[in-house]
């Protein structure tokens, strides 16, 4: 007895989750790029493309529901599907954060940035790298990797602290930049939330592999 159809569809849906992950990665990195370059057209594009990410998420969710209804998966098959339904929600919300950054770029407009961006792109890089590895851990059901990645959220939190303190100092020195500095804090906050959501994906890796629901590395924010 085999479950060729179920396995084929599980694989296809998992591939689509990875595709969605790729779209989200590009949205996050793109949003920071638009901010750096203050490219308002590109910012608008990221906002528009979020619609496609949302649609992809609903499409995957629908496939998961259809698979449950038609194939009655149990045990690890069921856990994989349920985990994917959760993961795509986290991915979609990460893209919303990227969209949020694009919107902040529009708010800043052509006003000069108050400082060169160093730690903020670093946060984005770190977050995207964690995201990529968390999805890889999911496809490999790698519990140890997932635990390690969730620990790395502390690094993003530390970068956020640094950005926040730095901007606070600048605001105290020159109250005229308070608005623009606040915008950058919002950007950093969006990035900090993205890394938190990677931790959620790591939790789903553990659930898929072991059936245990554990809360991993609760962020200080």
């Amino acid at each position: 007895m085999t479950r060729a159809l179920l396995e084929k569809q599980l694989q296809e849906i998992q591939d689509e989750v990875l595709e969605l992950g790729g779209m989200v990665e590009r949205a996050i990195l793109g949003s920071i790029e638009t901010l750096k370059k203050q490219d308002l057209e590109m910012a608008q594009l990221i906002i528009t493309e979020d619609v496609a990410i949302n649609q992809k998420r609903f499409h995957i969710e629908e496939r998961c529901i259809q698979l449950m209804a038609t194939q009655q998966p149990v045990a690890s098959d069921l856990r994989q599907i349920v985990a994917m339904i959760h993961i795509i929600v986290d991915l979609e919300r990460m893209a919303d954060h990227a969209e949020g950054i694009a919107k902040i770029t529009l708010l800043i407009g052509k006003e000069p940035l108050i400082k060169p961006l160093i730690d903020i792109p670093r946060m984005a890089q770190k977050g995207v790298e964690m995201l990529r590895r968390s999805l890889e851990a999911f496809t490999q059901r790698n519990v140890e990797a997932a635990k390690g990645i969730s620990e790395e959220d502390d690094e993003v939190d530390a970068l956020y602290d640094q950005v926040y303190r730095e901007l606070l100092v600048l605001m105290l020195q020159d109250p005229r930049i308070i608005q623009r500095a606040t915008y950058l804090i919002w950007v950093a906050h969006n990035l900090e939330r993205i890394a938190d959501r990677v931790t959620n994906i790591c939790e789903r890796v553990v659930f898929t592999a072991t059936g245990h629901m554990v809360e991993m590395n609760v962020s200080k924010y």
């Binding site: 098959d77 069921l78 072991t210």
Partner: peptide, 19 residues
């Protein structure tokens, strides 16, 4: 048993992989 069976043979049977 149906969400997280302990034995791989149970897993294989209830998921329809063998038996």
């Amino acid at each position: 048993i149906f969400t997280n069976p302990k034995d791989p043979r149970t897993e294989g049977y209830i998921t329809g992989r063998f038996g």
